[in-house]
Amino acid sequence: ELIWEQYTVTLQKDSKRGFGIAVSGGRDNPHFENGETSIVISDVLPGGPADGLLQENDRVVMVNGTPMEDVLHSFAVQQLRKSGKVAAIVVKRPRK
């Protein structure tokens, strides 16, 4: 059984690379294997702001206090874009 651990990460936006993450998932883009609608970190740019803080497959729980459960992919992207220079991101990942 999976035990999820929650992490809060504060990312500083890089002028060229943004937050250095890509997200997939969302209500309109469920996971191809299990139908899960979570917003998921799909890519972490090496050397970017999120490197060492976020991991691929982290589930995004909140962005700047806005819940990311059962939202559209575009909504999640929009929340990240409009967060200015700093984003507080809450993620969960299975305990190893």
Rank of each mutant, 00 (worst) to 15 (best):
K85R: 14
P46F: 06
V23H: 00
G25I: 02
K16D: 10
I3L: 06
V77H: 07
G20W: 00
G84L: 08
S83Q: 08
E5K: 06
P49H: 02
E5G: 07
Y7E: 12
V86D: 14
V23K: 01
W4H: 08
L72Y: 12
A87S: 09
H73Q: 15
Y7D: 07
G48F: 03
F75D: 07
G25A: 00
D14A: 10
E56F: 09
A88R: 14
P30K: 04
R17K: 13
H31P: 14
H73N: 14
G84H: 13
R27N: 12
L11Y: 00
T10C: 05
V9M: 07
Q78E: 14
V91W: 00
V71K: 06
A50Q: 00
Q78C: 13
G48S: 13
D58F: 02
V86Y: 11
R27H: 07
D51H: 10
D28H: 07
G35A: 11
K16V: 13
F19C: 04
E56Y: 13
R95P: 08
H73D: 06
N34K: 15
D58Q: 02
V23F: 15
P49T: 00
H73K: 13
H73C: 09
E69G: 14
S83Y: 06
L80Y: 01
R17N: 14
D28L: 04
I89E: 02
R59D: 01
L53V: 10
V90D: 08
H73F: 08
P67W: 15
T10V: 05
S83A: 09
S42I: 06
T10I: 05
T66R: 11
Q12D: 12
T66H: 09
S42A: 07
F32C: 15
G65P: 00
D28W: 01
E56M: 14
S74N: 15
V63E: 01
V60Q: 03
I21E: 00
A22T: 13
Q55R: 12
R93F: 00
S15W: 15
V63G: 00
V90I: 10
P49N: 03
A76T: 03
L54T: 03
D58W: 04
Q12V: 14
V90N: 06
V40G: 04
Q55L: 12
G47D: 07
N29T: 07
S38G: 05
E56P: 10
R17S: 15
S83T: 10
K92R: 10
V77L: 14
I39L: 07
P67L: 12
N34A: 08
Q79M: 14
G65W: 06
Q55K: 15
V90F: 03
V91K: 02
Q79Y: 08
A22I: 13
N64F: 00
D58A: 01
P49I: 04
D58S: 01
E33R: 08
D51G: 05
G47L: 08
E56T: 08
L72H: 14
V44M: 04
F32V: 11
S38P: 07
L2M: 15
G65E: 13
Q79F: 11
L53Y: 12
E5W: 04
E1L: 13
Q55P: 00
P30G: 07
D28T: 06
T8F: 05
P67G: 06
P46L: 11
P30M: 15
L45H: 08
G48H: 03
N57R: 10
D43F: 14
A76S: 04
L11G: 02
S38E: 06
D28M: 06
Q78K: 11
L80V: 09
F32G: 08
A76H: 01
T66M: 10
L72N: 15
V77P: 03
Q79G: 06
A22N: 14
G65S: 07
D14F: 03
V77M: 11
E33D: 13
Q55D: 05
E36S: 05
K13T: 10
S24C: 12
L2C: 08
R27K: 13
I39A: 01
P94K: 09
P94N: 12
V91H: 00
P94S: 14
P30D: 03
Q6I: 09
G26R: 00
G26P: 00
Q12G: 05
R17D: 10
V44L: 05
S24W: 11
P46D: 15
E33L: 10
S83K: 07
K82C: 09
F32N: 09
V40S: 04
N29Y: 06
S74V: 11
Q12H: 14
K92E: 15
G52E: 05
G35S: 08
S24Q: 15
R17H: 15
L53N: 08
N34V: 03
G84C: 13
V86A: 10
A87E: 02
L11P: 00
N34H: 07
E56I: 07
S24V: 15
S83C: 14
A22Q: 14
T10H: 14
S42R: 08
G48M: 02
P67E: 11
N29F: 03
E36V: 05
V61Y: 06
V77W: 08
V23L: 14
Q6P: 08
A87W: 00
V61G: 02
Q12I: 06
S83I: 13
Q6N: 15
D51M: 05
